[in-house]
Structures are given as C-alpha cells and as structure tokens.
Design a binder for these strands. Structure first.
Lengths: 142, 142
DNA sequence: AACAAATGGTTGACGGGTCAATTAAATTGG
DNA sequence: CCAATTTAATTGACCCGTCAACCATTTGTT
C-alpha cells in the first residue's frame, strides 16, 4: 500500500525544476521577464490603472510593483501620473511605444508556450490544467 | 481548430502561480528552503562530496552553492575541508547535528507534499508525473 | 476642527538566483 | 621542465521577490 511516496516526491521535484527552467528560458526567448510581461499585458487591457489595483491583479508585492514600474517608465514603456482626485494613488498607463512592443512580446509568448506544450493534445492539456488547478487549490489551504 | 490557446495560457499561468505558492509555503512549514533541504538531503546520502559534484547534482550555480554552504557551515550543519589529493576541491559533509536535523526536515517535507497532493489518487499522480516530465523535456530543447 | 486610523506608495535590508571576473591549484603538451 | 590551459571555488554586481519601516494623504470620529 505504499510506493506512492516516490511519485509524490517526483512531482515536487519536477515542479521545482520546471520553475527553474521556465522563467529564464522565457526571458531569453521573449526578451522580457514573465512578470513584466504580465504587467504590460494588464496595462494593455485597461488603458489606465492604479498601482494598487495592478498589484492586486498581478498578485505581487507593492515594493516589486514600484520597482518594475520605475524601470518600465525609465525605458519609456509606461507613464505614471498622480490621481487628481486622490493624491495617494498613482495611475499607470502604457505609452504608445509600450503599446507597440506588447504586440511582439505577446507573439513571442505564444510561440514559447506552444513549444513548451509540443506533443500535448487537447486531452493532455485539459488533464494538466485540472491537476495544476487542484494543486493550486491545495496550496491555498496551507 | 483553435480554442486550445486559452488552455495553453492557463497552464503557463498556473505553473507560474504554483511556483510562487510552493516555495514560501514549504519554507514556512518545513523551516528550511527547498534548495537547502535538497543540499542536506544529498549530503545525507553520500557522507562526503565535493562542492562541484554537489552543484551538478542539485543543478544550481556555483556561486549559490558557495553561499549556501557558507551559511550552513556557520549554523553548524555542515563541515568543509580541502581534498588533500587535490587542493582545488573542498569536500563537504554533514555534522552530527546536521544529520539529526535532516530527519525532522524530511518528515516535514513528506507531510507537506502529502497535503499538496491531497485528493490525488495513484492514476492522477502517474498522469501528472508523465506530463510534467514531458514539459521538462520540452523546456530542455529550448 | 482636530486627532486617530487606514490607505497607497517608496525605500532599505535581506534571501535566493544568475553571470562575469578573479584566484589558486592541477593538468597538459611542446 | 615550463608555459598554457583547464578546473574549483570565491567574490561582486545585478535581477527579482519578500518584509518591515516610513511618509504623505485621505477618511472617520468625536
């Protein structure tokens, strides 16, 4: 009634290894880090958004948001301005340049994900989504 | 012949989110970071090993190894000495204290992984291992 | 009105990873 | 045998995430 422990360990190791593999490769392929692309993607959809809302959407630390946006502003991808009706919040939006670049980034991302999933048919993907979602759910209970 | 893109994106997002969830929770539960525990676990099995061999086993940067082992040495978990037959290499081993602690760490890890996989039966685990391994394989081709 | 609490953002320090440059020791080859 | 190369380890600089402390502003209470 045992022999299941090895599989469990294996899953844990694979998840760790996968993590370590995906982010750097993605960044090399797409030319941007996954997190930054998620920021840009969100901005792409909403036109203008407060940092705090962005932070909650992306689910990342406030400090990290500040630094990413500072960087993105310096590289001309993003604009920031104070919300006139509440001077605590800063509103963020894509520049035209940022808006343009997001397109190519998204293309790269699509390509990357496709090659990540080469050999996976519809059923494989559904099954994987299901299991990953269950893992996610279990984690949140801890 | 489309509609598969959403699943692919979802898988990518889930993997990212999972990563972000697992490591901190693990550390909180087990009292040690996953990487450090992997180091200790390896040392536990081999009695004594060179840093370079350890590094290849764990698949991590040499700089990171140096710093982890420095830390573990300071906290009394690990011994290091020069290899008398080749003064370039440093040999690493668990102290008795380290050896003792590994036991409890491994228990915690087992518990953690089990709760991570609650609701997964034999078949689910096999299927998940299979798919994660295929992802891993695909990544390595990039 | 004034003081207390909550909110949004920034900064500094830290852990964990990478890469690039450096050092010391060993190995190789002319 | 000595010079060139390779190898193991270390260090510094950087990216990315966290948390904790702090500041400014707004909101709520009395």
């Amino acid at each position: 009634m045992t022999g299941h422990q090895p599989d469990e360990e294996r899953i844990f190791e694979l998840l760790q290894a996968l993590n370590k593999g995906i982010s750097p490769k993605f960044e090399r392929c797409a030319g941007i880090s996954p997190t930054r692309l998620r920021l840009l993607h969100e901005l792409f959809q909403v036109e203008e958004i407060s940092q705090i809302a962005l932070q909650k959407e992306i689910d990342i630390d406030a400090a990290a948001i500040t630094r990413h946006l500072k960087g993105l502003e310096e590289s001309g991808m993003v604009n920031r301005r104070n919300n006139p009706v509440d001077n605590r919040v800063t509103l963020v939006s894509l520049t035209q340049q940022g808006r343009d670049k997001v397109h190519s980034y998204k293309e790269e991302k699509k390509r990357f994900i496709s090659s990540l999933l080469t050999g996976f048919d519809e059923q494989d993907r559904k099954s994987l989504v299901d299991k990953l979602a269950r893992l996610q759910h279990n984690i949140n209970l801890l």
